[in-house]
Design a protein around this nucleic acid. Structure first.
Length: 506
RNA sequence: GGCGCCGUACCCAAGUGGCUAAGGGAGCAGUCUGCAAAACUGCGAUGCGGCGGUUCGAACCCGCCCGGCGCCUCCA
């Protein structure tokens, strides 16, 4: 039985979709005016994992994730770069897809853009005006929060409390300082769509209400996003949608915690962010390896907790995955058809099955789920010493791979994994100093990539290994150790197995 | 000022009323090894920021305090 923590009620609730066996979920995506940083990646990953697990539980999932492609920040960025705003959004939508692909994050069922839903947005604003919940002021349209009694229910705040400390610019045209824009009149040169209130563009919140309604209906099951969207974004969505339809917008509100640097929220304004792009380009491992390391790193912490990004954290995730891929290698290489450990393996896999489901059913506890994988890893290693039949070894691998798939882990071939430790292994990620705010500058600040470690081809390695084993047979251990040192210098680890053969890892 | 979150071993991190407080990393000791590496085995919090309280029983509930953070303005 799946339980989900609902921000609206503040507790875990048993999940039951409105329509049996079908889940409709909406997640607020990104505003496309810059590169994604790790915080965006975490949110995308968390909700993709939610979706994957729901699918694993045999739900049919309709997953909508939007792009905000019209907004003040986009307009500003366009001015800054001296290019049309459409070029800005096109560029960063492309960058977003590139990053998601590297992280192994699949596309949503529908990925709508605000700019292609103008009719829906205008229709929604018109409804709110007709119902007297919104009002016009010059070319703008505002939502009147005082007409919505439940305002503040999600973020647990009262209008009266907020007035006290809110340093909102006093806009004389607003009836209440918390009233928010549904439609903004365009100044000259700004992107504009025709509307009954003159040319302009939608406010930020209204697009999500319009698009979710269009693609999922008036009420759907799960609405997600980063915790920083609880207020005002999601609060405003609820107000608009409910005011327009008279129906509950979403039944389960799910919010992920922040990525932090040195205990502080990663954000543009603090300048302490790392873009997904620079992590991939500078961490030195090949893309699929870095992608999985990032997934592991992020999923090893529960999605609602903050996660502190650091070089050490990444290293630990890498080492943990080394352990799993090392096991995959051993499972493949081991020989012997007899399997004294076979019956025990069956039990172990059964335990993983139960443990995994229990963990994930408890509000998507990926950290606890990963612990289950670790336990199976140890048990299989142990059983491998006892002896596992070929069939059992295949089963063990398959169990890890199929459960791992729900988290997007263990999907590579062990041959494609990179076991070597990077050298210098740490230090590229200097989290103690203020980061320059532009990725371009950061590259310069941190010097060249460290991925250009010289390497050898498989054949060259094989020759060296053969030569070394020949030396070992002659008991010329001095020569054997020389060769091993040489291979080490190329980032290759040599392991002599008990049966006399040698395996190597890059 | 309002609302909220976090503080579990050297590090990361589950657990939120009741078996011996998961799991990983690091460390130490051992098995194996020509030496290594890997793997395995063993060791590691009588205690969960502090102090009180509720309870037969609390890391988990309540209160106060200390430390850190977030939202209230664009923010995943």
């Amino acid at each position: 039985m799946l339980k989900i923590y609902n921000t609206l009620t503040g507790r875990k609730e048993t999940f039951e979709p409105l329509v049996p066996k079908t889940v409709r979920m909406y997640v607020c995506g990104v505003t496309v005016y810059d590169e994604c940083h790790l915080g965006h990646a975490r949110s995308a990953l968390v909700f993709e994992t939610v979706r994957r697990y729901l699918q694993y539980c045999k739900f049919k999932v309709r997953f909508v994730k939007n792009f905000t492609d019209v907004d003040d920040k986009i307009i500003n960025r366009a001015k800054e770069l001296g290019i049309p705003w459409q070029a800005v959004t096109a560029k960063y939508i492309k960058a977003y897809y590139r990053d998601m692909k590297r992280l192994g994050i699949r596309k949503a069922t529908v990925e709508p853009k605000a700019t292609t839903h103008m009719a829906d947005i205008i229709g929604l604003v018109r409804t709110l005006l007709r119902k007297g919940i919104a009002y016009r002021a010059d070319g703008d349209v505002y939502f009147q929060v005082e007409k919505f009694p439940a305002y503040g229910a999600l973020s647990k705040r009262k209008l009266s409390d907020m007035q006290a400390g809110a340093r909102v610019e006093v806009d004389e045209r607003k009836r209440h300082p918390m009233d928010f824009a549904l439609w903004k009149a365009a100044k000259s040169g700004e992107p504009a769509w025709n509307s009954p209130w003159g040319p302009g563009r939608p406010g930020w919140h209204v697009e999500c209400s319009a698009m979710s309604m269009k693609h999922l209906g008036k009420t759907f099951d799960i609405h997600g996003g980063g915790a920083d969207l609880i207020f005002p974004h999601h609060e405003n969505e609820i107000a608009q949608s409910y005011a327009a339809t008279g129906k509950e917008l979403a039944r389960y509100w799910v919010h992920n915690g922040f990525v932090q640097i040195n205990q502080e929220k990663m954000s543009k304004s603090l300048g302490n962010f790392f873009t997904v792009r620079e992590i991939f380009e500078k961490w030195g491992y090949r893309e699929p390896v870095t992608g999985e390391v990032l997934r592991y790193f992020l999923l090893a912490t529960h999605y609602r907790s903050p996660v502190d990004f650091s070089d050490q954290g990444l290293q630990e995730a890498k080492r943990a995955l080394d352990g799993f891929y090392g096991l995959f290698q051993r499972l493949k290489e081991s020989s012997g058809a007899k399997g004294p450990g076979d019956s025990q393996l069956k039990q172990s896999i059964e335990r993983l099955n139960d443990g995994f489901r229990q963990a994930m059913d408890d509000d998507f506890n990926t950290a606890a789920a990963i612990a289950q994988f670790q336990e199976l890893r140890v048990e299989v290693n142990r059983l491998l010493v006892t002896g596992l039949s070929r069939k059992a070894r295949e089963k063990a691998r398959e169990a890890l791979r199929s459960f791992g798939a729900v988290l997007g882990l263990f999907q590579l071939l062990w041959r494609d994994w990179e076991f070597k430790d990077l050298y210098p292994p740490t230090g590229w990620l200097n989290t103690n100093t203020q980061m320059p705010s532009r990725p371009e500058e950061q590259h310069r600040a941190h010097g060249p990539h460290i991925s250009s470690v010289p390497t050898l081809s498989d054949n060259e390695i094989k020759e060296k290994i053969d030569e070394r084993n020949e030396a070992r047979r002659r008991k010329d251990f001095k020569r054997a150790d020389e060769i091993r040192a040489e291979l080490t210098s190329f980032g290759i680890t040599v392991e002599d197995k008990p049966d006399g053969t040698t395996r190597w890892k890059r």
